[in-house]
């Protein structure tokens, strides 16, 4: 177990090193690309700091106040409609890029939250409430409403299908 854990923790460092190697290669071929990418990188970092803090606070609060038993009751094996509603609403309300939510979802998964709810959360996360006015501006009211509703329905189906395949 301990060895497995150790191996896991190396994997992510290999990943980061791999990305840095790609940057170094680009630095040799075309330094301007690296400079522009790095500027972009910094702009993302400053934007996600608030999300990082939000995720941290949520992780602490959920761990401290929500008993694992309750979590399982609403989002575990025997969870029903409430589980769907919670994951859809949580997905719609969450902000920032999805990868910021992986640590929290990882924690939930370990505690026994069903994969269908995690999938539905991720799918609904792609509907960005603050960006809806912009989508309306570009594509119109009717389009935005229909697309959003179809996506919410799709999240249910997707959750069921992904979980079914995972069980095979």
């Amino acid at each position: 177990m301990k060895e497995k854990k150790k191996k896991k923790s190396y994997g992510k460092w290999y990943f980061l090193s791999g990305v840095i190697v790609i940057y170094l290669i680009f630095l040799l071929i075309k330094p301007s690309i690296v400079a522009a990418s790095f500027d972009f990188f910094l702009s993302i970092i400053t934007k996600i700091i608030p999300v990082f803090i939000l995720v941290f606070i949520l992780m602490v609060l959920i761990n401290y106040f929500v008993e694992p038993k309750k979590l399982i009751k609403y989002l575990g094996k025997k969870a029903g409609a409430k589980g769907w509603i919670i994951s859809i609403i949580a997905g719609l309300l969450s902000t920032g890029p999805i990868y910021m939510w992986y640590p929290l979802l990882n924690q939930m998964q370990k505690k026994g939250v069903r994969n269908r709810f995690i999938t539905a959360f991720i799918y609904n996360r792609s509907i960005k409430l603050p960006l809806l006015p912009l989508l309306i501006f570009y594509f119109g009211w009717a389009y935005t409403i229909v697309l959003t509703l179809v996506m919410i329905l799709a999240s249910l189906l997707q959750g069921i299908i992904v979980e079914k395949i995972l069980e095979v």
């Binding site: 992510k12 980061l16 990305v19 990418s37 972009f40 990188f41 992986y102 640590p103």
Partner: peptide, 25 residues
């Protein structure tokens, strides 16, 4: 505990943001 698990995620998050930045450019 939460800070530790976020810290453990840091190399992955940084790597992903670096990749996204590169692809964007």
């Amino acid at each position: 505990k939460a800070a530790k698990s976020l810290y453990n995620m840091l190399p992955i998050i940084l790597g992903i943001i670096l990749l996204i930045s590169l692809i964007n450019v």
